[in-house]
Amino acid sequence: MNFAPRYLGRGSWLARRDPRVLVLAVVFFVFAAIQVWDIRLVALLLVLALAYYRSARIPFREVRRQWFIAILFVSLLVFGNGIFASGRVQRLPDGAVQHIYGYLPLLGTPISAESVTFALTQFLRFMAMIAIGFPLAFAIDPAAFGVTFARLGVPYRFAYAIDLTWRFIPSFAADFRTTMDAQRVRGMDLGERVGGPLARLRRQVPILVPTIVNAIAGAEDTIDAMDLRAFGTGRRTWIRELRLDPTDRVVLLAFVALFVVATVAGFTTSSSFLWIPPFLIPS
């Protein structure tokens, strides 16, 4: 098991951008995307996001597990919530009627062209957001997180905490693996699936307690090491220099423009309402 973020996009066009661009791109894109409900435009946003993601040149085989988890999670969230939970559809134009295909057995939840469109729109939107977000983890130099957030105005102690998180995830994962192995040699069956969620959680205690205790003990050493190199005692500089080049400015401007257009369109066009593909409407 490896949770560690890896610099998989190293050397790519996107990785050569100022990392602040990657952070701000996510912010502007997300705020643009949440305003758009027309599935045609959301699909367009997804295409844009995938093109952006592709420019990070992240090898798919290295992240297929993360993509699988993301798609599974989004699918459960969207289809579970949108279709099976209530069947209620938001963002329909005033006076629009629902074209119902039928009702779920037992639950009685209606399934309609509108609820299906709603779910598909949400799904595409989340996938677009994930495509824009992945480069944050894989196309930013792990050593640049702190300075990136510090230069975006985050206090440097918090900014450095982000650096430290990336730094210690591999160590924590290694400790976790060691503890799992230490309990496996005591006969613990990690794959046991008996009992409810609480019972399963209780069975993880032999793994969680040593891992957490060790992490706390290790943190004390790390805090000492940071204190001894004068962390947090005064003005700080950063060895990494961040400078927006013309390409960075263009990319950033494009995302700002996207946000502005989405906002204006939301007030002036029907982009903020669901659009039901005609082929989904029963004749």
């Binding site: 050593a143 650096d163 730094r167 700080r236």
Partner: peptide
Amino acid sequence: PARQIVGATVEAEMAFGPENLGMDR
């Protein structure tokens, strides 16, 4: 040393102390 190293890269680790002292890049 695994607990002492806070930088994600070798250069970041070496620069950690000087950065905290506000040293010129």
